[in-house]
């Protein structure tokens, strides 16, 4: 079964950009999208999501809050937080849930590290 990555961002433009970058790095991965935290949680609950890429700045529940919830449900799922501004408390929160930062605007190079690490973790067999 192909690795499935969930892209969560309220901006369709940003989802397109992230999708293209992921496709360039891992053409074999399947991509699914959600535009807010509730949709994301619903999609993950439906099963089959292996990796998630979350925009930090979303209305309602922000990317870090979503990451914390996903982390509680899936202790080893590779999670990336996409953000432009990083403040120290935000970094600390991300570290606390073991999420990776990826800078905006999202590029192939910027995502490469996360994708490599995610592949590594998935290979280690823990989901």
């Amino acid at each position: 079964m192909a690795t499935t990555v969930l892209i969560v961002d309220d901006s369709k433009l940003a989802r397109i950009v992230a999708g293209k970058a992921i496709q360039a790095l891992e053409p074999g991965w399947e991509r699914v999208e959600a535009s807010n935290a509730d949709e994301a949680l619903a999609r993950v609950a439906a099963g089959g999501v292996d990796v998630a890429v979350l925009d930090f700045n979303m209305p309602g529940k922000d990317g870090l809050a979503l990451a914390a919830e996903l982390r509680a449900l899936h202790p080893s799922m590779p999670l990336a937080i996409i953000t432009a501004n990083v403040q120290d408390e935000v970094i600390a929160r991300a570290r606390a849930v073991n999420a990776t930062f990826v800078a905006k605007p999202v590029t192939e190079e910027g995502l490469r590290g996360f994708v490599s690490g995610a592949t590594l973790r998935l290979r280690a067999g823990v989901r």
Partner: peptide
């Protein structure tokens, strides 16, 4: 770097 940083996608060399 944290011991598990590679799994997070960090590359200290980069």
């Amino acid at each position: 770097p944290a011991a598990d940083c590679f799994f997070l996608g960090d590359d200290p060399m980069a």
